[in-house]
């Protein structure tokens, strides 16, 4: 890739994003070592990582876009498709399963009209399963955005999610 071409690609990233990525690069021996940090930085600004963002990050880290995509798609918390304003991470590991997370999932599906992996039509929520959240004594639990909600029941779930968004 020519230098001009690569500059062109990188221009898809904001100064703020580039600065944050460069701060990570400063303490590692190889640029591509910050691949995951860079993906997370861009995702924190844009909600997800588009093809355009991915190519820009790859160019900035002197990697191929395919190589970076191989890394991005490995990690379940890097979103390569748009997600809603908030992601619901519903724990479906063992202690939450014992305490009925399957029923809760069904209840969320009824209320929001989405299955696992889907986004509500008003774009408020994306529903995803997640590995044990380290709060098994408060099972069942879920995260909505950055916030953990414990000791869930069908009523509290609906309260937290703010009622129905089904059209």
């Amino acid at each position: 890739m020519s230098e001009a071409n690569s500059m062109n690609l990188i221009s898809a990233l904001s100064q703020e994003e580039l600065q944050a990525i460069d701060a990570e690069i400063a303490h590692v021996p190889y640029r591509d070592a910050v691949a995951i940090d860079a993906l997370k930085i861009v995702q924190a600004h844009r909600g997800w990582v588009s093809d355009e963002s991915l190519s820009a990050i790859a160019a900035h880290l002197h990697m191929s876009a395919d190589e970076l995509d191989g890394i991005a798609t490995f990690y379940n918390l890097i979103y390569r498709r748009p997600v809603g304003d908030k992601v619901i991470l519903l724990c479906n590991s063992i202690s939450c399963w014992i305490k009925g997370c399957d029923n809760l999932q069904q209840r969320i599906t009824e209320e929001l009209g989405v299955e696992l992996g889907e986004t509500t039509s008003d774009n408020r929520y994306t529903l995803l399963p997640v590995t044990c959240l380290g709060a098994c004594d408060k099972a069942p639990v879920m995260m909505v955005g950055d916030e953990l909600h414990e000791d869930l029941c069908e009523e509290s779930i609906i309260r937290i999610l703010g009622g129905s968004t089904t059209p």
Binding site: S93, I94, S95, T131, C132, G134, A135, C136, D137
Partner: peptide, 9 residues
């Protein structure tokens, strides 16, 4: 992330 583990948190 070990299922059922909540000590390091």
């Amino acid at each position: 992330m070990e299922p059922g583990t909540f000590k390091d948190r």
